[in-house]
Amino acid sequence: MISDHRFIANFEKYRYLLVQLIKRDIQVKYRNSMLGIFWSFLEPLLTMIMFTIIFSYIFKRDIPNFPVYYLIGRVAFSLFQSGTTGAMKSIIGNSAILRSVYVPKYLFALATVGSAFVTFLLSLIILVAVMIVTNVQFTIYVIFASLPVLVLLLMTLGVGLILATVTVFFRDIEHLYGVFTMLLMYGSAVFYPATIIPAKWQFLLEINPFYAIISCMRTVLMNGTLYNTGELLYATVFAIVSLVIGMALFYKYQNKFLLHL
């Protein structure tokens, strides 16, 4: 019976802990700020306004609905960035707990990805609001946006697990990864039109699975047509591979974590 498996039983037992950890993670983020969780809406909204003002002059003709174009890239990027960065620090940050009581260790990584996802869902409210305000036509294809979101979630978890494991042994990753996420943001056409990339460098966008995801989301949400399934498939394969590697690495090395914390 699958439900008798240790993993499933453990997950059942610690489900409430996962809820608690996600809650705490979100509370920590907005602790002592007056507006608290409203920053989940405000922050993307403010950066959207800022980028719109800056770029509507530069890219005016290239991007039809820049606010929505930007917001899609931005909320997806935030999910990936805060989820993976949080997961990376989750094991190190909870070393005191891990030293004193048995808890399935992956829960800490899962919880940070979970809290990033909750923030993501909240920021979708802003996205929908901006879509309505800017007269975007809602089509049936909107529901297909859930697929790239799911792929993004799996990819975030996979990359997060890899980072969580590796960072325990090599703390330098923590600093390096900040540079990498910045590179990723610049390399994924989050706030500029993909067409400005010269033809000979276009392949960089094509091999970027994160760009594939936001591109799919933009297609269904803004154009009202179905995305290129090959693009989604490429991102899916990447997400699953990273998840498998992440789980395998984590599972293999989790017993050694305590010696390095």
Partner: peptide, 19 residues
């Protein structure tokens, strides 16, 4: 360990209990 200093005693009962 497992207590959060920013949580109240009540919240910590649930946090620690869940751990």
């Amino acid at each position: 360990s497992g207590f959060d200093p920013e949580y109240t005693g009540r919240e910590n009962i649930f946090l620690k209990g869940s751990l």
